[in-house]
């Protein structure tokens, strides 16, 4: 009995007293939540007087998203849709992501299209990684299953016009997850945070002590085996989301030609252009993440033409020029955020 009491006193001394101290001083302390989710890593930094969010809470947010959106999870809602003959009743996550995807699909004239999954699988980038590239006949027949026009949202019901239609929201789900987590921190009254999942980032507020702007490094492909300088640039942003789509990690080779995981829904073949990566800065991560893939598919010239008409997104590009040199370029407003 007395031993339990002693433990209780210790607990109060360890956990409650420091909280009083910080509360009195109103000092914001950094808290880190890190782990593995969605086949990649996540890192969250937030500033608060005391711990507001635990790792298990963050992990349960990921779990609820994966149950809905992960094509890697058997029985997920998206997998059940893909296996269904004509459609499925959506939950909140699937509805949010499909609606946004269809919006981005329309505004990019179909360069971004979540119905591209049958082609992605045929090219060996799906859950099962095949290595034999599809022939033109196979691609032509798969194109019958591709195209957002074959998807219909009727209230909460997502209908497919052809049983072979399958969707893959991997190009946007990570950004969406970042937004869901940011929203979760907002509900906990956290106003200064950086949420990063697999290289997709959302920022609000500043870092403490010092109340300085958060800094984001933009990664670049390494030049040599011993190259430690992997950050191309460092940027400071007042808020919003920064995401990157790059084909320098996920590709395989066929006849000496690199096949990227970004497949054109129009032609059925991988996009081939000069771009190695696109980094997008936008209001929220689902927007940035949706457009980074589309801009990758467009190529540099078309991407800049698109950006001139969509002033709410800014972008940074790493590309190979005609002589094979790796260069970068960006929209003017994006350049203003770069500090080195």
């Amino acid at each position: 009995m007395s031993r339990c009491f002693l433990i209780l006193i210790c607990c109060i001394a360890f956990f409650v007293l420091p909280a009083f101290n910080t509360a009195r001083g109103k000092e914001l302390l950094p808290f880190y939540v890190e782990g593995i989710a969605q086949g990649t890593t996540y890192h969250i930094t937030y500033y608060a007087e005391s711990e507001r969010v635990s790792k298990s809470q963050v992990d349960s947010v990921f779990k609820s998203i994966d149950r809905s959106l992960s094509i890697y999870q058997p029985g997920s809602l998206i997998n059940r849709f893909n296996e269904s003959a004509d459609g499925i009743l959506m939950d909140q996550h699937l509805r949010n992501v499909v609606k946004k995807s269809m919006f981005i699909g329309r505004s990019t004239n179909g360069v971004f299209d979540i119905t591209v999954l049958p082609l992605v699988q045929a090219w060996g980038f799906g859950v099962n990684r095949k290595v034999t590239p599809p022939d033109s006949v196979a691609i032509r027949s798969l194109l019958d299953c591709v195209g957002s026009a074959k998807l219909l949202i009727k209230g909460n019901y997502l209908e497919k016009r052809n049983a072979c239609v399958k969707i893959d929201v991997n190009g946007i789900a990570q950004g969406y997850s970042v937004d869901v987590l940011a929203g979760f921190f907002e509900t906990k009254n956290v106003r200064n945070y950086l949420v990063e999942v697999g290289g997709e980032i959302r920022v609000r507020g500043k870092k403490y002590p010092g109340a300085s702007a958060m800094r984001i490094g933009i990664e670049a492909p390494a030049k040599t085996a011993t190259d430690s300088q992997i950050l191309q640039h460092v940027m400071e942003i007042p808020g919003g989301a920064v995401t990157t789509s790059g084909n320098y990690r996920k590709y395989h080779a066929s006849d000496g030609k690199k096949i990227t995981h970004l497949i054109s829904p129009a032609t059925g073949y991988p996009f081939t252009n000069e771009l190695l990566s696109v980094t997008v800065w936008a209001r929220d991560a689902i927007t940035a993440d949706g457009y980074d893939n589309a801009l990758m598919g467009m190529g540099l010239k078309e991407a800049f033409a698109f950006l001139s008409k969509h002033r709410d997104i800014e972008a940074f590009f790493i590309y190979k020029d005609n002589s094979g040199m790796i260069r970068d370029t960006a929209t003017a407003k994006f350049y203003q955020q770069i500090i080195k």
């Binding site: 990649t40 930094t45 950086l194 290289g199 984001i216 990664e219 950050l231 789509s245 996920k250």
Partner: peptide
């Protein structure tokens, strides 16, 4: 030097 790094997703 940075608070976060954006890049193509690393499989982890």
């Amino acid at each position: 030097i940075v608070d976060g790094v954006t890049g193509a997703t690393i499989e982890a």
